[in-house]
Write a protein that binds this DNA or RNA. Sequence first.
DNA 1: CTGTTAGCGCGTTCAT
DNA 2: ATGAACGCGCTAACAG
Lengths: 330, 330
Amino acid sequence: MLESRAAVTIDHVALAAGVSRSTASRVLSGAGSSSTESGRRVRSAAERLGYVPNPLARALARGESGTRVVVAVSGPSAEVLQDAYVGQVMSGAATVCGQDGVGVSLQWLPLGAASGPLDRLAADRSVRGVVLVNTTREVLNVMPARLRGRTASIGLGGPGVPSFDVDNSRSSADLVRHMISTGRRRIVMVVGPEWLPCARRPVEAYLAVIRSAGLPERVLPGDFTVSAGHAGALEALRRWPDTDAVFGICDATALGALSALRSLGVDVPGDVAVGGFDDVPFAALSVPALTTATHPVQRIAAAAVTAVLDSGQAPSASAYPSLLVLRESA
Amino acid sequence: MLESRAAVTIDHVALAAGVSRSTASRVLSGAGSSSTESGRRVRSAAERLGYVPNPLARALARGESGTRVVVAVSGPSAEVLQDAYVGQVMSGAATVCGQDGVGVSLQWLPLGAASGPLDRLAADRSVRGVVLVNTTREVLNVMPARLRGRTASIGLGGPGVPSFDVDNSRSSADLVRHMISTGRRRIVMVVGPEWLPCARRPVEAYLAVIRSAGLPERVLPGDFTVSAGHAGALEALRRWPDTDAVFGICDATALGALSALRSLGVDVPGDVAVGGFDDVPFAALSVPALTTATHPVQRIAAAAVTAVLDSGQAPSASAYPSLLVLRESA
DNA sequence: CTGTTAGCGCGTTCAT
DNA sequence: ATGAACGCGCTAACAG
């Protein structure tokens, strides 16, 4: 607590411990080998002096090139950055990075922007790596070689870009099966935007279950929004009046559907069951409470960032389990 | 696009331009003076070679100390970092910081942790500045001098720590007045945790309006959670059966109250009105839709981070307007 | 296991 | 206006 205003460097520590810079460095960075005795003295001196290594100098000497990880979110407009989902990713990522002295920044990747933004990131030596969100095929195709190996994707992966994602396929199938097992036979799905490949998986899961059960396939377009769910439910009842269940690709969409059905006087789950995906905080509070599936976003984000930081060989793809949460709506 | 894999340094540029390192540095960093001719040649060479300065080396040489801004959130447990509100702050902060090549990291500040964590941040040369969230008096008191001037608070401010916050006082008063003007006379407020000073402001606003209207003061404890709202509504009706309105300090609490009232068969807003604060995404979807007040979190976070980065003289306190959003519940 | 010597890439005095 | 030299704080290669 007597720290002087001037920064205390490793030289000060070495001097105080009566050893050379190198020895101090070895002890403090944990690399190489050192005797128990000098190790103790160095550590004690560092503690006493309040030594904190300068990450810049360390990175420079190590040839590491980057003090930040960029979370790059694809989408039609910059508004995707406002999304609560992105917020969760940021929190998860930033918590892990902090330990390591690196920060996270956030950026929008316009759909169809070619490789421009990505090239800029690759050239910027302040970026240690990239975490892709809402990853599209296009982004994967134009991914600069210099970014591969230090990029992770929350969603679709590719060569040099490991994927960290929920197994939404599994839980979607579970939900549809649950609906069928509780007597539903005319199940409509309101899906996600076409530009997002991983939003396709739950749809495939839905289709597979529906087909094997010999039920009619009913898919309506959507874009993850509440209004898509609202419009979807309306359209469903118009085209198929016998609809007895609506599966929204996400909770926002499901809640939109819930709201539309309610305004129509349709009883949920009496007449129509509704299911979603995400388990957002307020899914439990809707009327009726929404049946959905969990989504460990922060854990996934943390894993993705860790892969980028360690840059060692991370698994090329890891799927996180998603659990069905049965509530009242289905 | 013919960039070789090896990083191109300022030496390469200098060599290609036929000048010395110093001259190249002067030209590219804009400091000092240089002839028009060599300036042109250096710039051209840099362009041709695709030179991008290494921010680490630059910062190290300049003695700048910081590549990240730390968002430090006070709270009883690390779970505060999971909060959607914190996610919003992160998104807003990280978007701004990215422009500048700096990242954001996230950290929990345990209540009653004395100055330990803050001292570590002050000593860590990788931190450019700090943004405080859920700022307590205690944190302000133990704020290290070396952090002042590069710290901003989203909430309560102090010396060397400018405040960026919503004017929740104003909109809270507006809400209570609205309730009174629509005939409510027994208004209960479920408040926030005691350790959070800025959560006190809406309570004061409530009390002021209630008193000037000659109505009974009815305040119940809470902690920003859904369950606090749930419990609060139950307790309110138990202690004061004539309650005709519940004001939750935040939307989560208000929605919890809504849920409790519903389970009791109380008609909202017929028997009891309910109001919240935050305007979370699903406030519009509750049944009935929640009356609340907006909260420009991302804008505020962006301003706070800008103040930390510019480190110039930011206003010592700026209050952002909060607008009442009238829906069905009140 | 230790100390010595070289850089990492850049800014910034000094002379010239 | 320009170049040579030094230093930022640290790690890594080399001898001993």
